[in-house]
């Protein structure tokens, strides 16, 4: 389970990191990293201001 980050859309704002309930995301300078604790809950994808995240089940 994970989320795909569209790097060409992402504005590296960190909002998704702030809402992830399990802390699976990290903003490193200009990109988002997803670790293996992601539960595909979809909260990050919902709130991303530009729609750069897509949940993969």
């Amino acid at each position: 389970m994970t989320v795909n980050v569209n790097r060409y859309k992402c504005g590296y704002c960190g909002a998704c990191v702030g809402v992830c309930p399990v802390g699976a995301l990290e903003l490193v300078e200009t990109w988002i990293e997803v670790d293996n604790t992601c539960t595909s809950c979809g909260v990050c994808a919902k709130i991303c201001p530009v729609g750069a995240l897509v949940v993969v089940k």
Partner: peptide, 9 residues
Amino acid sequence: SLKPQDIET
């Protein structure tokens, strides 16, 4: 961690 209703995007 913030819930969707706890953040302005």
